[in-house]
Each structure stands twice: as C-alpha cells, then as structure tokens.
C-alpha cells in the first residue's frame, strides 16, 4: 500500500516534469507583426486591466473607462481600426504579449529594464510619482521615520521595489504587501498599517472615508513612467507607437487625459 502510493507519486511527478519539458521544447510559431498586418486584419487587440483606477476601471454604464482605456481607444482611432479589449491581471501582462493574446498592453506598465528583457516598451505616455501617505498625526519625513512602523503597499508596484529596498537598509520597517490598491487603503483606514506607499492620486480614496482628511502625503519616493508594451520582435509597431505618443504629447491630449482622470498634471515625460 505504502509503496504503491510512492509509485503513483513518482508517476504523477514524472508526468509533471514531462509536460514541462514538452512545453519547453515545443516548436514555436514566429509571427512578426507590422502595422500593416494590424490594419489589414481590421482590428487591434489591446490588453487592459479594469481594476486599476484611475487608469483602468469601469464607468457608470459598467463599460471600461479610465486614462489607459481612453488612450488605447485613441490608438485604434489613429490606426483606423476598431479596438478589441482583452482583460488581463497584472501578472498576466507579459504572458499576454508573449503568447499572442494581444498586440499591445496598455495597463500602467512601468518601464523597467528587467521587463524590457521580455517585452519592448514605447516611450512613456504617462507617469506618476510613488509617494508615502500616512495620518497627519504621524511625523514621517524619510525612510528613517518608518522604522518600527507597519508600511503597506501593493505587491509588485514601483513602491514595492523602493520600500523593500528601504526596509533592507533600515531594519525595523515591517512591509505588508496587499493584492490591490483598495485593500491597501482599507488597511490604512482600519489602522492595520501606520503608513503606505501609493500613487500621487492616492488621496482620492482616502477622502471618501470618514477619516479621509486625517491623511496626507509625506514624501515622494520616485517617478515612474508607463509605456505601451509590445513584443520584442516588433520594431515596426514600436516605431509607430513612439511617433503616435510624441504627437499626443505635443498637442496636449495626454495632459488633458491626466487632468480628467488623475486630477493632477502629468510629470514631464522624457523620451528614449
């Protein structure tokens, strides 16, 4: 009985390893896609996330809305084809591109070098500062003041990287990672955390709670820039996107979007 169990374990384990190998060695179709391909196909498929307000969310009619969504629609208009949205979650953004689920990702996709090893980024179309928020009654001016405190943040965001580093350099900072921004803010309001890292639009949320006015922005961590993600073997599409973003920046469209959704101006957007 005991050895039979072991044998089935080994069999199942072997099946798992085998299927992994199968995945790894399977031939992979190559399809470099140009702007012309998209136009002749008659639609552009863009990956979005509707749980990341004010960039991706749902409006009063429960349709996708927000900075990213409106920007994505403008991409479709400029290409002259309808946009088909596919919904992704944060960890699904890179796989969605790599597995051809979408032509591009427009979903608060911060431009970082490690990510660029897997996908290519356009020049930034938006950006925001990561900041530390806390109750007014708490005196916080820098990382050193966070020692001995519980600091909440959203997993995998820019704040996560920066504050995790800060916690290493300043022992005694306790980091709590939440899965989404609303949970993080709820933890702040419930008093489960003493301070939090968030975007510079973060007080939109806190203002709604009864104790909303008790919170304030303490200090700025860093500014992050969002780019459109495309597959790495797609220089043609990337070149077009860069040109397109350049024109929207010059004619003030991006700034308008920022005021409309973020209630604050965009930081200066550098190019690369």
């Amino acid at each position: 009985m005991f050895t039979a169990r072991l044998r089935t374990m080994i069999a199942a384990g072997a099946a798992m390893v085998l299927s992994t190998l199968l995945l790894a060695t399977a031939p992979q179709p190559a399809a470099a896609e140009t702007v012309d391909d998209i136009i002749s196909r008659g639609k552009v498929v863009i990956a979005i996330d509707t749980t990341t307000p004010p960039y991706g969310m749902i409006d009063e009619q429960f349709q996708p809305a927000g900075f990213d969504i409106e920007f994505a629609k403008k991409i479709g208009e400029a290409l002259g084809v309808p946009v088909e949205f596919v919904t992704v979650t944060s960890p699904g953004r890179i796989p969605a591109l790599l597995t051809n689920r979408a032509d591009m990702v427009v979903s608060i996709f911060s431009i970082t070098a490690p990510r660029a090893l897997q996908v290519a980024f356009s020049i930034p179309y938006a950006g925001q500062s990561a900041v530390v928020l806390a109750p007014k009654s708490t005196a916080i001016k820098s990382h050193a003041d966070l020692v001995g405190k519980k600091v909440g943040l959203t997993r995998g965001t820019g704040e996560d990287g920066l504050l995790t580093e800060a916690a290493k350099a300043n022992p005694g900072i306790e980091i709590l990672r939440f899965d989404d921004y609303a949970s993080l803010l709820q933890a702040m309001v419930s008093g489960q955390i003493d301070a939090m890292g968030g975007g510079d639009y973060g007080d939109i949320y806190l203002k709604k709670s009864a104790k909303g006015d008790d919170f304030e922005m303490k200090y700025i961590l860093k500014t992050f820039y969002f780019g459109v993600g495309v597959r790495r073997d797609n220089p043609d599409l990337l070149r077009w996107l860069n040109t397109f973003i350049f024109t929207l920046k010059q004619d003030g469209t991006l700034e308008q979007l920022s005021q409309k959704y973020r209630n604050t101006p965009l930081p200066p957007l550098p190019v690369f």
């Binding site: 509707t50 749980t51 990341t52 307000p53 969310m57 749902i58 596919v86 919904t87 992704v88 979650t89 960890p91 699904g92 989404d180 921004y181 609303a182």
Partner: peptide, 16 residues
C-alpha cells in the same frame, strides 16, 4: 486571473 469578469472580479472592479 485570466480576465473572466465573474462575481469576484466584478466585486474588485466595483470596489476600486
């Protein structure tokens, strides 16, 4: 996780 807007994901969308 794969973008199906069933009950739980809709809840997150509305909560945010």
């Amino acid at each position: 996780l794969i973008g199906l807007t069933e009950l739980a994901r809709t809840a997150t969308m509305i909560n945010t």
